[in-house]
Design a protein around this nucleic acid. Sequence first.
DNA 1: GTTACTAGTATACAAAAGGTTAGTAGTAAC
DNA 2: GTTACTACTAACCTTTTGTATACTAGTAAC
Lengths: 133, 133
Amino acid sequence: MTAVKKSEKITRPDCVTSLSAVGDAFYVIGGKWKLRIIIALSEGTKRFNELQRMVEGISARVLSSELKDLEMNGFVTRNVHADTFPVVVEYEATGYADSLRDVLKALTAWGKMHRKRIRKQAELERQKTTKRA
Amino acid sequence: MTAVKKSEKITRPDCVTSLSAVGDAFYVIGGKWKLRIIIALSEGTKRFNELQRMVEGISARVLSSELKDLEMNGFVTRNVHADTFPVVVEYEATGYADSLRDVLKALTAWGKMHRKRIRKQAELERQKTTKRA
DNA sequence: GTTACTAGTATACAAAAGGTTAGTAGTAAC
DNA sequence: GTTACTACTAACCTTTTGTATACTAGTAAC
């Protein structure tokens, strides 16, 4: 099992600060899709349909409204190439989106760890059930 | 303005991994309240009403259902002191909740930074408006 | 001429999340 | 005896989020 240092307690003022800071953060990047769209764009600029294919499960309507939010909050820019053939629109992550790097790194690492743990638990469940049967 | 390194691009496989890892993470700790409850408990054990006072804006109904979720997923334990007066219930963060430390640190730091940025923007807006008037 | 691709929007509806209000039992302070 | 505290829960309502389908215009492959 992964070694986890046992709870060093946090002071009350730190806790209150953290509460409101995380509240502020979730106000703009909370929700099911925003961070995932930012991750998809961290690989490079993408067109609307490319994004929709990459971010699994998102509908055009939701992607469209999420992109508007992200643009409004300065995480994404929308570039229209009107000169080209069908009219191509490219979405690009801004420098401000890059400021989320540490958050994304931590969240990605935790997500990987969590998935492993869940798999291990499911494994144990399966073994118990098999023995019982 | 805070210096932010301009987008080092991320490789496609990293991006796909990150997308699903963050998806997994948000499946259990996404939503408006879960991380905030965990932060409140990182300061030490808390009773139900204490938690509700600390996590501003949460209703009893939502706090109750969030705590059940968190307990089910191993982030929180529920300790009932049946011997005492009104029957006190204490909630405690587990070691698994502690594994979120880096996520919370990154998110807290980003939230603080973001709030500063927003305040700066509002300031500029205000100045422009004053000049116009 | 039918189909498909571009990047969406409109409409209608369903589901999920969250908020509001009121109420439970038991004690104890005013 | 009324109020308040303990830790919730039920019922109901609103808001947010998401789904499905159809549609736009312009081109180009079949």
